[in-house]
Amino acid sequence: RKEMTAACTPRRRIINLTSVLSLQEEINEQGHEVLREMLHNHSFVGCVNPQWALAQHQTKLYLLNTTKLSEELFYQILIYDFANFGVLRLSEPAPLFDLAMLALDSPESGWTEEDGPKEGLAEYIVEFLKKKAEMLADYFSLEIDEEGNLIGLPLLIDNYVPPLEGLPIFILRLATEVNWDEEKECFESLSKECAMFYSIRKQYISEESTLSGQQSEVPGSIPNSWKWTVEHIVYKALRSHILPPKHFTEDGNILQLANLPDLYKVFERC
């Protein structure tokens, strides 16, 4: 597991931080080997919608929660590849102030007048994250320049770009939802926020969305749709870069829909 690298990086740093090793061990302890084997050997059937997909393993048909699986995938990559990410360069710098204002204007932020003026909160978020810029760049390849612009994001899987519609809320939550006081809790909560931002979430995906850094293989055609990215990038990574937690067998994120021999018997009677 320590050699797990989802995106190509030129050289690998050895990380011996106790906090990170502890988080890696927790993933191992909570892992479910049968689910790992199923995901490793599954045959992708198709997307139901951005949140759900169908896959077959041996004779069984499964309904998989793409949102939760991708979130767990990105969390584990962030923990196992800690401080070893490439950088996704933004085509132009994104001012943190503008991103924070967009987030505060969104109902998702939960902002009320009692929280104070949005401009003041946005300025605080910019200054707060600028103070964390060195650590964010060093460990997470999340790059913020001296003017308070976001200029780079971590490359977690080759050819995958997170849904940038979720970027404003991500920046807001970096400042408000991460435990910045304790090292282990900081790395864990920061990785979880980043994983949620990178995950496939239906509120940020339309039929026209593209999450891939590449064009489709047909010359002159439109960019790959999110469905292509889910199948050929995300579920491909799920084959080798995730140890599913045991609770996925109990919380409805992986559901067995049918045993195909039983279905064949039904059709034979028709």
Rank of each mutant, 00 (worst) to 15 (best):
V34Y: 14
G86F: 13
V87P: 03
E134N: 02
T112F: 15
E3K: 08
K2H: 10
V218M: 07
E33G: 07
V266I: 14
S141Y: 14
L121V: 03
G252S: 08
V20K: 09
E123L: 15
N149K: 03
E123K: 01
K184A: 09
L61R: 00
E147H: 06
C194G: 04
N253Q: 05
L136H: 00
I171H: 00
F197V: 07
E114I: 14
I200M: 05
L172M: 04
A53V: 08
I205H: 07
N49E: 05
A55H: 11
P163N: 04
V218P: 09
L156S: 00
D115M: 15
L164C: 06
E185D: 06
L64M: 06
V234D: 00
C194D: 00
I157R: 05
V230E: 05
D145W: 00
I77S: 14
N149E: 11
D158H: 09
W226H: 08
G120K: 02
N41T: 10
L102V: 04
E177H: 10
F248V: 11
L129V: 14
C194W: 12
N41W: 08
M196Q: 07
G220D: 07
F82K: 01
H247W: 11
F197K: 00
P107H: 09
W111I: 10
H32Q: 10
S106F: 02
E188Y: 10
R12I: 13
L64C: 07
S240M: 10
L156Y: 01
H32M: 09
P107I: 12
I169C: 11
D145Y: 01
Q51K: 07
I171W: 00
T59E: 05
S216W: 08
Y124N: 01
R269Q: 03
K68P: 10
E72H: 08
E26I: 07
G46S: 02
F197C: 01
A122N: 01
A55Y: 14
Y160G: 00
I14A: 05
E3V: 11
P93T: 07
T210W: 06
D105Q: 06
V218A: 07
Y160M: 03
L90C: 08
R239N: 12
N65H: 10
F97M: 02
P168I: 00
F267L: 08
G252I: 10
A6S: 12
H57V: 05
E29V: 13
S212V: 11
I157V: 07
Q76F: 02
D262E: 08
I169E: 15
D115Q: 01
D251E: 04
N41P: 15
V20N: 07
L104N: 00
R12A: 09
Q56A: 05
P50R: 04
E134Q: 03
N41V: 10
Q215S: 10
A175D: 00
D158N: 05
F85G: 09
H241Q: 08
A55T: 08
Q215W: 12
E127C: 04
N253T: 08
A7R: 13
Q24Y: 10
S240I: 10
S216M: 07
P223F: 09
N159G: 10
E108F: 04
I233G: 14
E29R: 04
V266N: 15
Q24I: 14
E119Y: 15
G110N: 01
I79G: 14
P10R: 08
E183R: 03
I205K: 04
F187E: 02
L35H: 06
E146C: 07
Y198K: 00
Y198A: 03
Y198C: 07
A237N: 09
D138L: 09
R1Y: 14
